[in-house]
Amino acid sequence: MATLLEARALTAGYGGPPVLHGVALAVEEGGVTALLGANGAGKTTILRALCGMIAASGEVRFAGERIDGLPTEAIARRGIAHVPDGRGTFAELTVEENLRLGAITRRDRAAVAADLEGALTLFPRLRERWRQQAGTLSGGEQQMLAIARALLLRPRLLLLDEPSFGLAPLAVREVFGALARLRAEAGVAMLLVEQNAALALDLADRACLLETGRVVLQGEAAALRRDAAVRRAYLGR
């Protein structure tokens, strides 16, 4: 399979000392790469650096082209949709408006309508909440809205920052079930940050283990599942 996203020597931070020290990682076309690591290891920072939300150095290639240094909105327009931590929905706007915003840069109206139908089939609950302000949705529904909005960009790559955060067990299953369907049916590639390592490794085909801003282990998800250190720290068995 071809490489869709490739980062080399990625170094980034928030003005102080760098949080990432020369990270290298890749996501295959249609593949899912999971980022594992302790709190503060730099997982969220990687996602932010990849889509230009913070200053970073290093080389990032998406579909063969350099995207490092581009502004966030330009990166989004190339087909990278980021579902950030805290979900980033527009709390004051309705569900409908949030979804319309997901496709705001697209001109192919017929395809947008089809994608909207697809997103609502994936998350039927959003249809019931159509005219409700996003801020009044439950946590699970907000996460669904955030993912659905990201899908309306018709992305080739989804960046997901802790999609299970704050969700009840049932809601977590619902969201991860939808992600698995997306992967299987639409072939959307994903870079996934998730503390629930068992869930993440179920969905992923590759995984990177981060420690204090460096990749210390990476490989097939199945191999990481068997790794003793990963099992102890992330899977608890």
């Binding site: 989004a76 949709a81 527009f90 915003l101 705001i104």
Partner: peptide
């Protein structure tokens, strides 16, 4: 309302 999210959907804020 939310410039960060607006950029993420591709809006030139």
């Amino acid at each position: 309302y939310n410039p960060v999210s607006a950029r993420l959907v591709g809006i030139r804020v």
